[in-house]
């Protein structure tokens, strides 16, 4: 029996969509018994959402005022305690999971497999390295827990059909006070979320200014798409950091990805490999983005975006 503990990411009383993808990853292991850990200030609604994911055997709910907003240093000792008796501890490969899981692994004296893209066995996993230029198969030594982050773009969310038991747990362990939350800038919520959207329109350096980047926004709104950006566009201040797509930004898997004025550097491409259909618009016919595009259109974005708007 492989007993897998999944750490739930949540905010504002809502379970993050990445959790159901972690469940799919865990369920792809033979003999998996899946537990979700919800650490929250008042996590009843999150626990209920977690309990409804198909394939989940039980939900552990740890309510504690220190648990929200989430701080890795505060959550890690609690997760490490909950991990007792489990063979695997999974978290999503989001900024939440990336921050937390290695701290948990260290407390468990366990290795971490980052960005799992497929489970070959309870001990064997595949993951990308070198900005996705290579895929490695790694095997963890037997006899100790394995911590992993799940590359969410590689998995479909598990269905919502289950009704797992919810168990309230109180952990009697000291929590550190050396780390304190100050603030978070909330992203706009009136647009589809970049990480889960089925369509994404992304802009690059070629947009030239934050004002011009509004062209990307208009086109995205026209087709109900989320907005993305290259690193160059974010560095230049045309788009906020949370919109960066790529090796060191968000890894996404939309049905449709439209890259406009983006050259297609390897660090960018690694973030869009799993997109179903890629469209590239670039004035340079030699741009590397065309090597991976399903549809390529050579031309000036400042005339092509208005053209597209008229047609859509």
């Amino acid at each position: 029996m492989n007993r897998i503990l999944i750490v739930a990411e949540h905010a504002g009383g809502k379970l993050n969509a990445a959790v159901a993808k972690c469940v799919s990853c865990a369920a792809s292991m033979a003999d998996a018994e899946i537990t979700i850990a919800v650490l929250a200030a008042d996590g009843a609604s999150v626990a209920q959402a977690a309990a409804a994911i198909a394939g989940v055997a039980r939900v552990l709910l740890v309510d504690h005022p220190a648990n929200e907003p989430a701080l890795a240093a505060v959550l890690a000792p609690q997760v490490a305690r909950l991990a007792e008796g489990h063979s695997h501890v999974f978290g999503p490969s989001t900024t939440f999971g990336k921050d937390l899981m290695p701290r948990v692994a260290a407390l468990l004296d366990a290795p971490q497999v980052s960005d799992v893209m497929s489970v070959e066995s309870a001990q064997r996993f595949r993951r990308p390295v070198y900005a996705g230029n290579a895929i490695v198969t790694v095997e963890a030594a037997a006899g100790r827990p394995i911590v992993a982050t799940v590359r969410v773009a590689s998995y479909q969310p598990a269905a919502t059909a289950g009704s797992a038991a919810i168990e309230a747990v109180s952990l009697d362990i000291p929590l550190p006070t050396h780390t304190r939350f100050v603030s978070v800038t909330a992203a706009r919520t009136d647009r589809p979320d970049l990480q889960t959207a089925s369509r994404v329109v992304s802009g690059g350096r070629a947009l030239g200014s934050a004002e011009n980047f509004a062209l990307i926004q208009r086109l995205a709104d026209r087709i109900g798409a989320a907005i993305g950006a290259s690193r160059a566009a974010v560095d230049a201040g045309y788009a906020p950091n949370e919109l960066q797509v790529g090796q060191t930004g968000k890894i996404i898997a939309p049905e449709l990805y439209i890259a406009i004025g983006i050259s297609g550097a390897i660090q960018h491409l690694t973030g869009i490999k799993d997109a179903r259909t890629i469209v590239a618009i670039n004035k340079d016919a030699e741009a590397p983005i065309f090597e991976v595009a399903d549809y390529g259109l050579v031309g000036d974005l400042f005339t092509l975006i208005p053209d597209l708007e008229k047609l859509l």
């Binding site: 230029n133 490695v136 890629i278 399903d294 259109l297 050579v298």
Partner: peptide
């Protein structure tokens, strides 16, 4: 060593599509 790398593989390549 707790994670043995068994093998390296090149990633699946996307097919180049069509120009419109």
């Amino acid at each position: 060593q707790r994670l043995k790398v068994l093998k390296y593989e090149p990633p699946p390549q996307r097919q180049k599509g069509v120009m419109v």
